[in-house]
Nucleic acid binder design. Structure first.
Lengths: 241, 241
DNA sequence: TGGCATAAGTGGTCATACCAGTTGACAAGA
DNA sequence: TCTTGTCAACTGGTATGACCACTTATGCCA
């Protein structure tokens, strides 16, 4: 049995959720104005402060643009939102996972991962090099238990990203992680071949240790390619259904 | 003379700015609590609503975590913020550009750009293929005027990203664009060689037209590599000073 | 020692004003 | 006819003060 913290949400959280959903699913069209704050209060049966807090968050997320006197205008989130919107796009209106989003995330991971490994080999501190090596030691110890390996693989990439000393990689990784967490159980199979490929993780760790950026990059590329292949297979299967 | 819209900012905007700066520059340490809302009202001389709206935005940006009854707790933005924090990290406390951030952004661009070009070749619609080709036509017409070319290059990549049909690339690109815009005049020199390389843009457009993903990827890689080289040179120059 | 009330401090919600910017209708003037 | 100014009716922005709900530390009590 696994216990999780009970979810708690304030009124403005709920308002934010609803409005985000409406916008992302296109029921509030870009260019149009949101209903006025007072109208939203009436419709949602909350006070104006809750509505304003929610709208401020929408603005921060790049979903609306507020203009004093004129209204809150809906933006095209594809052009104005940031990566942290991804978790909101993962589930479609019918509750199913949007495979386009999963594919996109995997591709971004494959684009960034190898270079992160290379940069890590170039720039990691001695402590970071050692941490990566130690983690692969752990992976070898639990080899076979794919579920545990998946957790270690996540930490592996976390360390690699840190070692790459690239703040953009780090922040992008944060957003990707949140998507990953939401579909983690499903990916345990899809990415199985990659997750169990501890040998390549070892090679990467050794390349990082010896500051061999080229090897780190190439092996990481091969590693993420296995995951991409697994995902292609899974997508093909789903489309056949 | 170039006129720009006058900047307008609400009270909560100002509060958000100040708090963000304090957090990003480390004067509010991760794990500690922000001053209470009432204390912030007193210190900033604004009403509590303005403070709350600002704090909600901080939470949305992944900088704080609010707990009813306990306070607003500062998070480690390196692990919890999204890519859209990048523009806030670009300028350091002394007003200078943080070159680490610029380097990070360029690396992310180089990691994603080539794959985006490849995916674009695979997936772009006929209209998108035509748009890329037409844009390169424009580039050839103004060849020589680097400043204008820079604008077209931005639109070029915008089209490529759209054609790649990858929502993660699109959202990441949005965040990168905002950083780019803030240092655009400076990059006109740093990236000069890349910007003037219309020939490679032509090759990419043709590869996209003929759905030759491999060529699109390789040429795009060569193109962004020129920019990386320009940046390395610029960084070396700055460090010599 | 362990459990429980309590008080003080925190964020969350609410109602009600009023200020300030935007927009469109419309009348007065050129 | 076209322009210009005024005004009324919106919109979001700011302010106040009260109260509710949750957390935490304190200290008492069994």
């Amino acid at each position: 049995m696994s216990l999780r913290p009970v979810a708690r949400a304030s009124l403005s959280d709920h308002v934010f959720e609803q409005l985000t959903t409406e916008i992302v699913e296109g029921r509030f069209e870009p260019g149009t104005a949101l209903p006025s704050e007072r109208a939203l209060c009436e419709a949602l049966q909350v006070n104006r402060g809750a509505v304003r807090e929610a709208v401020k968050r929408l603005a921060q997320a790049g979903l609306v643009d507020s203009q004093h006197g004129s209204g809150h205008h809906v933006l095209d989130f594809r052009r104005s939102a940031g990566l942290d919107l991804l978790p909101r796009l993962l589930f479609r209106a019918d509750g199913d996972v949007d495979l386009q989003v999963v594919r996109s995330v995997m591709e971004l991971r494959s684009a960034v991962g190898p270079d992160a490994a290379g940069r890590c080999a170039e720039r990691a501190t001695a402590a970071q090099q050692a941490a990566v090596t130690a983690l692969v030691d752990d992976m070898e110890r639990v080899a076979g238990d794919t579920a545990v390996l998946q957790g270690l693989a996540i930490r592996f990439w976390d360390l690699v990203i840190d070692g790459s000393d690239n703040i953009a990689y780090r922040l992008a990784y944060n957003a990707l992680s949140e998507v990953y967490d939401q579909v983690r159980p499903a990916l345990i199979e899809v990415l199985g071949d990659e997750i169990r490929d501890v040998a390549r993780c070892r090679q990467i760790a050794e390349a990082i240790q010896s500051r061999d950026a080229t090897t780190a990059r190439e092996v990481a590329r091969a590693l993420t390619d296995r995951g991409m292949q697994g995902m292609r297979d899974a997508l093909a299967l789903l489309e056949d259904r």
